[in-house]
């Protein structure tokens, strides 16, 4: 343990308003803690005052409407993974949820935490990009909505201001019928950080790609929705040519190399396109 916990404070408010008061006073939100507690262990948690969100039941749960499915930011991956509704309508998210650490991690790790932690390798992110998710963000001032593909702006930079919390994630219902794929490539079979991941889904009509969404993890400073690739493939006849990969900007780090990430990203796309044909 590289930190002195007696120097940190944590409060666990019962209601959203109280939590928002804390957050607007500079208290750092803490949901499942599976990212923040690891930072604490490593002596790298800079914020000394934390607002625990765990008791905010109003930010938890899965609501199904005709047009949209709404997921509370505090929903844990264990619930997303086992929910039949998610499995049927948001299968890529269900698959990703099943791969976010082991069972014990999935029992604490939250969807909102995964997005707000803003790791380029966050595994829930590509699926949400593919599903055109919209974030509902709350603060004492009120509520606003941000399309998720506009949320990330740079490495650990996002459209989340001081005093704001991610409250809910809205997703369209009915995407379960698209042909999709989720593939996570990591340092071992399970319980490992992603080196490159792909979420993609397409609606195929009469041998052509009518609609398509593509998102990659860990190939750019943040989870990447690939608009140019999508544009190149929209309307393409199957079997489709590989689209351009110039949106990807992978790096070398101690987990992998840029070369590998790019090559595997292409291979994953090739496999996905082949599966559509």
């Amino acid at each position: 343990m590289r930190a002195n916990v007696s120097r940190y404070d944590l409060r666990a408010p019962d209601g959203l308003t109280e939590a928002l008061h804390l957050v607007s006073n500079g208290w750092k939100p803490l949901a499942g803690g599976t990212d923040l507690m690891v930072l604490l262990e490593a002596g790298k948690l800079a914020e000394r005052r934390l607002a625990g969100l765990w008791k905010l039941d109003e930010l938890r749960g899965i609501e199904v409407g005709d047009e949209t499915i709404t997921l509370g930011a505090l929903t844990i991956f264990a619930e997303l993974r086992h929910s039949p509704v998610v499995g049927l309508n948001l299968p890529l998210l269900a698959s990703a949820a099943a791969e976010i650490g082991g069972v014990a991690n999935q029992n604490r790790a939250t969807l909102g935490g995964n997005l707000a932690n803003a790791s380029p390798a966050a595994d829930a992110a590509p699926a949400l990009l593919v599903y055109d998710a919209e974030l509902e963000i709350v603060s004492l001032e009120g509520t606003r909505r941000v399309p998720y593909h506009q949320f990330h702006r740079g490495y650990k930079e996002m459209d989340l201001r001081a005093g704001e919390l991610i409250a809910r994630i809205h997703l369209p219902n009915g995407r379960g019928r698209w042909q999709g794929c989720w593939r996570k490539v990591a340092t071992r079979a399970a319980q490992a950080i992603t080196k490159v991941s792909l979420a993609a889904a397409a609606r195929v009509e009469e041998g052509r790609i009518a609609e398509i969404r593509i998102a990659y993890g860990a190939v750019a400073p943040y989870p990447l929705r690939c608009h140019r690739m999508e544009a190149a493939l929209r309307g393409a006849a199957l079997p489709a040519q590989l689209p351009p990969f110039d949106e990807l900007a992978p790096i070398d780090d101690f987990r992998s190399t840029a070369r590998y990430r790019l090559k595997v990203a292409r291979n994953l796309m090739e496999t996905f396109l082949a599966s559509l044909a």
């Binding site: 690891v38 490593a42 340092t187 071992r188 079979a189 399970a190 319980q191 490992a192 950080i193 101690f254 987990r255």
Partner: peptide, 16 residues
């Protein structure tokens, strides 16, 4: 050593 955590030094888990 730059990967001095179990997250980054990878030993086989049950699935490997």
């Amino acid at each position: 050593v730059v990967n001095s955590q179990m997250t980054n030094y990878i030993m086989p888990a049950p699935g490997d």
